[in-house]
Design a protein around this nucleic acid. Structure first.
Lengths: 135, 135
DNA sequence: GGAAATTGGTACAAAATTAAATCAATTCAA
DNA sequence: TTGAATTGATTTAATTTTGTACCAATTTCC
């Protein structure tokens, strides 16, 4: 059995993810959202503070600032000062934001689902389980 | 059993890859290379033409032009007109380029290998096999 | 053959992203 | 307490990335 090179797996995986996202980017853009904005929006419920978003998405803080500002301007997000800690801005997804997130993720699911379709249900579950262990 | 949401898997996977690469980016930079340049360089042997690189890496052509120019200036790459088709520029990795690629990929392997270490050898092989089916 | 369409690559200008510096609020340590 | 250090977020300026338009070489199709 050939030795497994982690960089090889990483790159394989990376190219796969990028090709999928490049494929749906135009459709997501049609929702009035760019892909990075969708990623941010999709994580807000779980991570309602910019600093948390920056950490989980591995993005610089100023980048998050920019996306949040745009998402707010688009009416997908609301910002309010956190009463516990006045440095923090607690983010809230608006109903419109929730709707557009669902649509965007549906597009991504459709596209990536087409690839996943090459795997059996059991293999898909296995993949998810492996990735969760790595995360 | 819970229904598998492809977008969920995609995002999990994306955050994982980004966090790994963000972790090694400084070390790769210390080699005089940024991460995207490393990805380009690592694919040149397999895809020696800019247009091919753009396709496999899902990057716009002008982006490849920029990276190739920098890699050439750094002495990691050589460019020559293809004798078969004078529109194409065939790329060649130089010995210095080969060396720096190996170092960069080693860093990536080390970082991602640390994550993969959470999996058994059999699981790692399974992961690779699943990803190959998807690619 | 030779126009029309396609393909590979680049230049330039515009847009996106980020590093560095900054400010304000909180926490820590004495 | 209080002042030093840390943390959350933003601004500004610089760098990176990319869309658009373009040129040159090749291919297609009449």
């Amino acid at each position: 059995m050939s030795r497994i090179d982690p960089a090889k797996i990483w790159s394989l995986n990376y190219n796969l993810l990028m090709s999928v996202i490049a494929g749906v980017a135009p459709d997501i853009a049609a929702l009035g959202l760019d892909t990075k904005e969708l990623f941010v929006l999709a994580q807000v419920e779980e991570h309602p503070y910019p600093a948390e978003l920056a950490a989980t998405l591995s993005m610089p803080k100023p980048t998050i600032t920019v996306y949040v500002k745009r998402l707010e301007a688009a009416g997908f997000l609301r910002r309010e000062l956190d009463t516990e800690d006045l440095r923090r801005h607690r983010l809230q997804v608006t109903p419109a934001g929730r709707k557009v997130t669902a649509k965007g993720l549906a597009l991504l699911s459709e596209a990536f689902g087409a690839r996943l379709g090459r795997l059996s249900a059991a293999e898909q579950a296995e993949l998810r389980s492996l990735l969760e262990k790595l995360s």
